[in-house]
Design a protein around this nucleic acid. Structure first.
Lengths: 291, 291
DNA sequence: CGAGGAGTTGACTTTGTTCAATCCCCGTGG
DNA sequence: CCACGGGGATTGAACAAAGTCAACTCCTCG
């Protein structure tokens, strides 16, 4: 994901953008919230295909002695919450099947989607060190997740040791993705944003062994728009336009990428450039090359 | 910073946005790059006022046995690079005095400022686990930094243990800030963005014991614009407008915040809302409350 | 088979960008 | 000490991009 190890130093935005922040959630299924998850012993949790980048943690935890971290399986139906903003953090999750979005709400009622999470992604990682979740996590479709109790983790730094490396890698991944989104929002046009989003999705699917040319969107136009900073109408229009030009095919939520090279050309226009850019060398570089 | 521990569960965007990502940098002052930094033994490094949130690492490292991590002091003159994108990661830095920006360049030549870093902030934290820096770090003014060699850190996970907690906290902070920026870019207007930016700066100064009502900007309009996703002209116009309305005073880069409550009102319009929003409770929440 | 949410599309408005002219510090050198 | 030069900042006018409002279509689910 996002060249986690910068193999080349050439930064590419390949890869799904998916998950971003947020801590695992508690289940004070107290108040008026319906019991949204049924927990069950998790045995097949770590079987996640090799395509489980963020799940290294899972593999590690699973591998090191049965169920010492009391992992369980959690099921969510479409629209149900995994956790709410403000809930005490009790666990981190890894998605087995399904899709989850993490989001926040603004004072004036708008919703901001912070990330989409797909199978293999961790949900709640960003709240690992916090006592309360900093966002909502909602299932976009029926979803199964593995639960990793977090108490054992952040009680004392010592217990973090064995997981340290994995966690750092995972957090780093989220940070890189967040930065990618930041750049996208700051300097891309509507068309560029949507294309970038589609390519992120495609890369994510490819990574998980699915077709990267034809897939079904799990989220609405509104949710896409929220994520990439556009209105749902603009998203719809851009879809139509890309279809008109013959770059993609759109039928409801079924998307086909017809000309990936062309799409990449569009998306990589305002993209982070590799190693030695025509960028400033030596002192006094500043931004005089912004233009 | 950004309710790192969610004391209340009520999320507020107080705090500077400052540092974000990027790993510490090497100093292969090989090629055509002038020797931009002179290193010297660092003894006063950890004296950083208590207002050194990200520097916990520094305090820890310093406290635990003289100079076992070979810390040094680095000096940068205005416009010089601390490290370049693609440089091998060899160290992480903490700013003692001065200001640094981290940025990337796009294919079509535009520059995207990813973060501003002020005294007490860590620079390069996000590249901790990477072999190559994922951005450029440039001094906006004459700057002094403490260097923390990174080899000792990420050689093996074990060595991370003692720093684990601090690092996780720091990384978490960066992640939360990145998310804040994401939300700002996705749903704020030009005015809201600039006001938010000013308040972040003000909070940052307050945190460091400086005036949060009157301060001098260390960055140009162009750099501000890059960071908050606007053109320099729009930034300038918004400054003028805020001054017209009497909310602030602008003289070159000297800013005075005259009516902070009013400013906060503007900035917190599209802001993350606290605990129990009018947001969806129970299942089937989705985004029906967006528009 | 009917209802309703999701998606598409069009006309119009708003916001921010682009291009360009001008201003104003600030530092330099006469 | 003051004139000059130059980059940063301001401002204006025309333009383009995306948002808003609204009508209408099409699935999908019950």
């Amino acid at each position: 994901m996002y060249g986690l190890f910068g193999q080349s130093g050439s930064i590419k935005w390949t890869h799904e953008v998916s998950q971003f922040f947020h801590p695992p959630a508690p289940m004070t299924q107290s108040d008026d919230r319906p019991p949204q998850r049924e927990a069950m012993p998790c045995s097949t949790c770590c079987q996640m295909a090799g395509s489980c980048p963020e799940c290294g943690l899972g593999q590690k935890a699973c591998g090191r002695a049965g169920a010492d971290t009391a992992q369980r399986m959690v099921r969510l139906r479409k629209g149900e919450f995994l956790y709410l903003l403000g809930d005490p953090v009790t666990a981190i999750y890894a998605i087995r099947v399904g899709t989850v979005k993490t989001h926040v709400t603004t004072e004036d009622g708008r919703t901001q989607v912070l990330a989409f999470h797909f199978p293999g992604d961790m949900v709640g990682l960003d709240s690992l060190v916090r006592p309360h979740y900093a966002s909502y996590a909602t299932a976009l479709e029926d979803t199964k997740l593995c639960l990793f109790a977090v108490d054992a983790l952040h009680q004392n730094a010592a217990s973090l040791a064995p997981l340290g490396a994995q966690l750092l890698l995972a957090l780093d991944g989220q940070l890189q993705r967040a930065r990618a989104v930041q750049t996208m929002l700051a300097l891309m046009t509507a068309e560029e944003r949507l294309v970038t989003f589609l390519l992120w999705l495609a890369d994510g699917f490819a990574l998980r062994g699915f077709s990267s040319s034809a897939f079904v969107l799990r989220m609405s136009r509104e949710e896409i728009g929220s994520f990439i900073g556009l209105t749902l109408e603009t998203v719809s229009r851009q879809f139509s336009r890309l279809a008109e030009v013959g770059l993609i095919t759109v039928r409801h939520r079924t998307i086909t990428l017809l000309d990936k090279p062309a799409l990449r050309a569009i998306a990589s226009r305002p993209m982070i450039v590799a190693q030695a850019p025509q960028a400033p060398i030596g002192r006094r570089a500043s931004l005089q090359d912004i233009g």
